[in-house]
Design a protein around this nucleic acid. Structure first.
Length: 438
DNA sequence: AAACAGACCAACCGCAACTAT
DNA sequence: GATAGTTGCGGTTGGTCTGTT
């Protein structure tokens, strides 16, 4: 919105300017010992803006309480600072947020919580107030609709970071980065881990760089991989013949949450964001709650439709998962029952395998609320606002990042349909296109 | 056309951290 | 170390705009 600063004034800006000038003159005449100046509140006038800009031009930023004294502007220092930082300072980017910015905000919020100023530092030209307003309105709307607050990519990252407690939580790769740079960014994001633990992005990175299609022709031997197989209908198999979502006989639904594009980049948004690879080569697809339309498939039907040349891919993925499985152990449940994933060199202990399996189930549950009943995937328009998704309120300000538990409450949609609707491929219900759906 | 609801935005308030004396 | 002043941040409020009924 580009509202005029004086839009809500009961008097015109000119009148306000006149009043300000009068007050300024009176104050000058009154001199020392005069009654305390009654500072003005409310929207700023263009004249006040001009005075403030002129002051900053002369004296620079800071020392805001001196503005009133030096210019006669009837505003407190706080108000001056706010006006300057939010509206008058140069290089401010006005207008609505771009899809990239929206995604970055989601990522940053997942990472930082309500740290608007720190988020603004990652968004040049944007103010904390702007980001805060944006997030609050979008979040409120989505919660009311029972939709997940975070995009699926961010949910996955949250799921991984929530299940695994690490020494740090590295910056996310920028969605603006081109594909190769994103892989580098992922590397950079994981490179700072000095402990023996894996970086939280490792799983996704491995999946991203594997660059292979996946398939499950039979139940995987690894319990770690079973959830993937159980939800195989949510994987895309790039090697197979293209299966149209509308193809009645198509066993697979081409969902495309492409982690290889860096967290937060939907592969369905290639027009907006650079893909990892310039060529549409085969890639691993992770489960997603994105649906172009309803696909009431069962895993059995999915498996029945697999083509033989995908067998090798399944083995490849399973091998990769097994390696990951071997590299991670699960601590005994904490007091609160949370399992803690940690790296270790040996094989799993007796109970670890089951818990890893549970972890992956949990991950899928968080990612895809419909997984437990895929046959009931409703039509996109059947939103079910029966769950108040919640954002974590990170009240523990400035916690030591080495100990911070990014316990963001994953805003899982209560209704199976909500995520379908929200992250649909038709552009109607995308993250960045929510403004008028409720 | 009017009423209403929701979205959007600017600005205020209180608090905490920081800095100077 | 205590105090006052300043700055920054996050939560909240209130006004306007816009779409819907």
């Amino acid at each position: 919105m580009e509202k005029s600063p004086g839009a809500v004034l009961t008097s015109s800006p000119e009148e306000e300017e006149e009043k300000a000038a009068e007050a300024y003159g009176e104050e000058q005449q009154a001199g020392e010992g005069a009654a305390p100046v009654v500072l003005k509140k409310g929207p700023w006038t263009t004249a006040e803006d001009a005075m403030l800009v002129d002051h900053v031009r002369r004296h620079g930023e800071g020392n805001w309480n001196a503005v009133q004294r030096l210019t006669g502007l009837l505003r407190c220092g706080k108000s001056c600072r706010l006006r300057w930082t939010n509206h008058l300072r140069p290089n401010l980017k006005k207008g609505s947020f771009s899809p990239d910015e929206e995604l970055l905000i989601a990522q940053l919020h997942a990472q930082l919580g309500n740290k608007w100023a720190r988020m603004a530092a990652h968004l040049p030209g944007r103010t904390d107030n702007e980001i805060k307003n944006y997030w609050n309105t979008r979040t409120k709307r989505r919660q009311r609709a029972g939709l997940p607050v975070y995009p699926p990519e961010v949910q996955l990252q949250l799921a991984l970071s929530k299940r695994c407690r690490y020494d740090d939580f590295s910056p996310l790769p920028s969605p603006q980065l081109p594909g190769a740079a994103n892989v580098q960014a992922l590397d950079a994001a994981t490179a700072g881990y000095t402990s023996s633990r894996p970086a939280p992005l490792d799983l996704a990175r491995q999946l991203a760089v594997t660059n292979q299609t996946v398939q499950f022709l039979s139940a995987p031997s690894s319990p770690w991989a079973r959830p993937f197989a159980r939800n195989a209908q949510y994987f895309q198999f790039a090697h197979s013949s293209p299966v149209s979502p509308s193809t009645p006989t198509g066993p697979l639904h081409p969902v495309t949450p492409d982690l290889s594009l860096g967290y937060g980049v939907r592969s369905t948004d290639h027009s907006r964001l650079a893909p990892l690879s310039p060529s549409p080569g085969p890639r691993v697809e992770l489960p997603s709650n994105q649906f172009g339309q309803a696909m009431p498939l069962t895993s059995a039907a999915t498996a029945a439709g697999l083509v033989p040349d995908q067998h090798q891919n399944a083995a490849s993925l399973e091998k990769m998962l097994q390696e990951l499985h071997d590299a991670i152990k699960v601590d005994p449940p904490a007091a609160n029952g949370d399992a803690v994933l940690e790296r270790h060199g040996g094989r799993e202990n007796k109970s670890g395998g089951q818990r890893r399996d549970d972890d992956m189930d949990t991950l899928f549950d968080m990612m895809i609320p419909t997984l437990n009943a895929p046959e009931t995937v409703p039509l996109p328009q059947a939103a079910a606002p029966n769950h108040s998704g919640s954002t974590s309120h990170h009240s523990s300000d400035d916690q030591d990042p080495s100990t911070v538990d990014l316990g963001v409450d994953l805003p899982v949609a209560g209704g199976a349909s909500s995520s379908d609707q929200d992250w649909g491929l038709d552009g109607v219900c995308q993250w960045s296109n929510m403004s008028r759906i409720c």
